[in-house]
Design a binder for these strands. Sequence first.
DNA 1: TCTGCAATGTGACACCGTGTCACAACTGAG
DNA 2: CTCAGTTGTGACACGGTGTCACATTGCAGA
Lengths: 204, 204
Amino acid sequence: MPKQTYFHLSKDKQETLIVAAKKEFSRVPLHEASVANIIKSAGIPRGSFYQYFEDKEDLFYYLLNQLAEKSNRRFISVLMDKNGDLFETFIATFQFMLEVHRDQEHKNFFKNVYLNMNYKHEKTLANDVYEETQKTQYFNTIKLIDTSKLNVHDEQELHHVLKILMGVTFQNLVQLFVKEYSDEEALKNYLVQIDLLKRGLQKN
Amino acid sequence: MPKQTYFHLSKDKQETLIVAAKKEFSRVPLHEASVANIIKSAGIPRGSFYQYFEDKEDLFYYLLNQLAEKSNRRFISVLMDKNGDLFETFIATFQFMLEVHRDQEHKNFFKNVYLNMNYKHEKTLANDVYEETQKTQYFNTIKLIDTSKLNVHDEQELHHVLKILMGVTFQNLVQLFVKEYSDEEALKNYLVQIDLLKRGLQKN
DNA sequence: TCTGCAATGTGACACCGTGTCACAACTGAG
DNA sequence: CTCAGTTGTGACACGGTGTCACATTGCAGA
């Protein structure tokens, strides 16, 4: 989390920092990004940077979290639109992600995120970061799911279903960049996997 | 891949390097590891290191690949033992992984691998690295699978099933370190997920 | 045994990035 | 106008990387 000093800055300056950061994190993944480039691009002295952020990771995860929150809100609203249908929601979300990632403004940034998707990145994207909101938000989301269509017996199993779906979804987004799939191919593969998940991998 | 020079070294010296590398990569994840520590521990000059390896990544992935190959051979032999039962094989492999990771010699190394599991790590562990062997090995493995128990219609779907199972397996191994589960808890969770995958997430 | 080329060993060095710290500038309450 | 608290600033110490000129070794052929 950025330091208080950062939040005392004018919205303008905050935005400038974010833009500069995104530019650098679009160029290279986190561990190759340099503070030097960010400050040059934002036009602030080095010392100031460290007044605002602990380090580049602090800024990176703040940025990633902002984008994740947007996605998360979208996920919830789609879930409501689809009357709690989890599969439909995941598919719609995946499609939306394809669009977002196609967009030049975000493309390279997400490429660097997904190709270096480690636990902390995934946790951030799964909106698991700032613990206060985490649990309540999770329970609110869970409540929206229509479990009557799901093959689960208790909340425990529902939790695992979510884990599986998120895992598979992330995996497919990673593949999008690794294999340089077209949107159509990526979606096709994802749909096959979702279908397999729905109907079960084992023959009855 | 290490340079030829490395392979010209005596087995002893090779082993010393490997031990030193593993020590450093157990201490910290790849991007925090330093060549300085490896050479100090191995007792070789800096210049020599760069005679043997392109950089520390080269050494890291070589090491990881060695371990992955061991796992892979094990996977295949278990698959044969279990007469091609994919689920049984994955479960047995997961259990074996739990044992291996419990072992102090490997524990921290794998912790650093899994908590920073990015695409390249996963690809290496999935034994996807050196392209020549990759495809033939994949097809040989596939042939061993008893598809009569699986809810798949073609090889394409089988491929996706493998993707899903590997993804879920990796995810659970990561959780082992993130949540610091006991072996029993980790296995319990994994079994719940495998069971869900088998029977399908959607109610009939 | 000697010669000379190719392969390997070596560590000082140039370069680059990080995070800090002493000091400067600003701000606002009294 | 003052002064304490906050923020701005950039030079700097530190540590890590990969290279390169030179030293050493190994070995084939005379």
